[in-house]
Design a binder for these strands. Structure first.
Lengths: 245, 245
DNA sequence: GCAATGATTATCGTATACAATTATTGTCTA
DNA sequence: TAGACAATAATTGTATACGATAATCATTGC
C-alpha cells in the first residue's frame, strides 16, 4: 500500500496543486488565485504585487499574503526583491531557453509513462480538456485558452503518476506561461492544438514511444515559436503599458 | 550579454544557493543552517522543528523562523502539518524511487553539459571536493562525508551552467540525503567515490558521452544501494528510538 | 533649464500579542 | 486496570504595531 507523498491536508483541489506544499487555508487560496491570474495572463510579467494591496483585495492580513508571495517565489512565478517588494516574474531570455530545454527533457518521459498508465477516464478527461480549449478559442478568450493549453500538459503529468517529475513539470509550465506572455511571436495563432490531438491518439493506442516523440517535437515547436532574440517589448511598468496610446 | 536568472541579492554564497529564492538576511541564514544540518545527518528525518525552539537557538523571532521553515518545505526537506508544526521530512518508499528516477533522467544530461563547459579551475575544484570527502571519511565523520558526496553532484550542476536543471538537481540531492538516512543498506560503505573519480576522468578528457553514461550508471547504483522493501527502522519518534535498547 | 540634494511618503522587515487548535495529563468510571 | 472524558498546557495561525529601507518629489544651487 502506497502512502501519499505529502500530507493529505495539502490541498488536492483545482488540479494545480502540488507546487505549493502548504496546508489548506487562506494562504493557499491566495496562492491559487494569483497563480491562475498569472496563467490566464491577467497579471502581466513585471506587475508589482504590493502586500497591502493584495491583502486588501482578498481580505487577508499581510502575514498571510507574505507567505503566499514567498510560496509563489519558490515556484518561480514571482520575484521578491529586498525592501522593494514582490513582482510577477519576468523570465530572462536565458531562462526561457532553459525552461523549454528542461521541458524537452522531462515531458517526453512523462508522456511515455502516461501512455501506459492512462485509464479510459483519463482519456475522456484529456479530451474534455481539448474541447474546453477549443471553446475558449472560439469565445475569443485567449488568456483562458492559453491557460488550458498549459493545463493539458499538467494533466498528462498527473496521469503519469510520477509525482516528483509531475511537480517539476507543473513548475516549468507555470513559468512557460510567463515566457509566452513576454516572447510569443504570433499573438493569435491557434496554439498548436493539433499536437495535442496527436498525443491523444497515441495515448488511446497505448503507443508509449509515439507519445514520447510527439511530446518532444511538440515542445521543440513551442520553443521555436518564441522570439528570443530581443528584449521583451513592454516590461510591465506603467510607462510601457501606456506607451501605445 | 546574459543577465542573471534571479536577482543578484539572492545569495550566491556557500555553494548551496539557488533552491531558496529569498533575499539575503536572517531567514536565508536559518534556511542554510537547517539545510546543512539535515544534509550532514545531524537532524534526523521526522524530528520536530518547533518554531519557538528554532527561534531561540538562532536568536530570531517566530516570524523569520516560519519563513525559513516554509522555504524548506518548498524544497521538500520539511513537512508542515496544519496546527501541528514542521518536521524534518520523511520521504516515503515511493518518493525515494521517484527521486532517484528523476536523478537518473536529469543528472546524466547535466554531466554531459558539464563535460563541455568545465574550465580547468572547475576541474581543480571538483578534485578538491573529492579530496575533502576522503579526508572526512578518514576522520570518521560520515555525516560530513555523505554531505560532501552530495555536494559533488551539485558542483557538477553548477558547472553545467544550466540554472533551471541545476536547481532541480539541488532539490533532488537534498531529498536524497534524507532518503539515504532512512533507507541506506550499508551504513559504513565507502560511498562509491570511485564513480566520482571516473567522472573526473571523463571531464578531464572532455568526453561528454562517457560522462553522461558514467553518471547514469552511478545514480542507478545509488538507487540499488537502497533498501526500499520495508518501512524505515526508526521514524524519529521516541518509541522507535528507544525500541533497540 | 537642469542636476544634485534633502525631506517626505510609502512599503517592506521584524517583533510581539492574542486567538484558535491540538496535545497532554489527570481523573473518573466500568 | 483499561478506557473514556474533561481540564490544562503547549504550539501554531493570524493580526497589528513599530522600526528600517528605499522611492518620490520638492527645493536649491549652478
Amino acid at each position: 500500500m502506497t502512502q501519499p507523498l505529502r500530507d493529505p491536508n495539502h490541498v488536492t483541489a483545482g488540479g494545480l496543486h502540488g507546487i505549493f506544499p502548504l496546508p489548506a487555508g487562506r494562504t493557499l487560496d491566495i496562492c491559487l488565485k494569483l497563480h491562475t491570474a498569472i496563467l490566464e495572463h491577467r497579471l502581466a510579467p513585471g506587475v508589482k504585487l504590493s502586500e497591502d494591496e493584495v491583502g486588501e483585495i482578498y481580505g487577508a492580513s499581510r502575514t498571510v499574503v507574505r507567505a503566499a508571495l514567498q510560496a509563489l517565489a519558490h515556484s518561480g512565478m514571482v520575484t521578491i526583491e529586498k525592501n522593494r517588494g514582490a513582482f510577477v516574474a519576468r523570465p530572462s531570455i536565458r531562462e526561457a531557453h532553459e525552461v523549454f530545454e528542461a521541458r524537452a527533457l522531462i515531458e517526453p518521459r512523462i508522456a511515455r509513462m502516461a501512455a501506459t498508465t492512462a485509464s479510459e477516464a483519463d482519456l475522456r478527461g484529456l479530451q474534455a480538456h481539448i474541447d474546453a480549449e477549443h471553446e475558449a478559442i472560439a469565445a475569443g478568450d485567449m488568456g483562458k485558452a492559453l491557460s488550458l493549453s498549459g493545463l493539458f500538459h499538467t494533466a498528462i503529468a498527473d496521469i503519469s503518476d510520477h509525482q516528483v517529475l509531475a511537480n517539476m513539470v507543473r513548475s516549468l509550465i507555470s513559468r512557460s506561461s510567463l515566457i509566452i506572455a513576454l516572447y510569443w511571436k504570433r499573438p493569435d495563432t491557434a496554439c498548436e492544438s493539433h499536437s495535442h490531438h496527436a498525443l491523444m491518439k497515441a495515448f488511446a493506442e497505448r503507443d508509449a514511444t509515439a507519445a514520447e516523440e510527439i511530446q518532444k517535437s511538440h515542445i521543440i515547436d513551442l520553443h521555436s515559436g518564441l522570439n528570443l532574440t530581443e528584449r521583451p517589448h513592454h516590461d510591465g511598468s506603467l510607462k510601457d503599458i501606456l506607451a501605445d496610446t
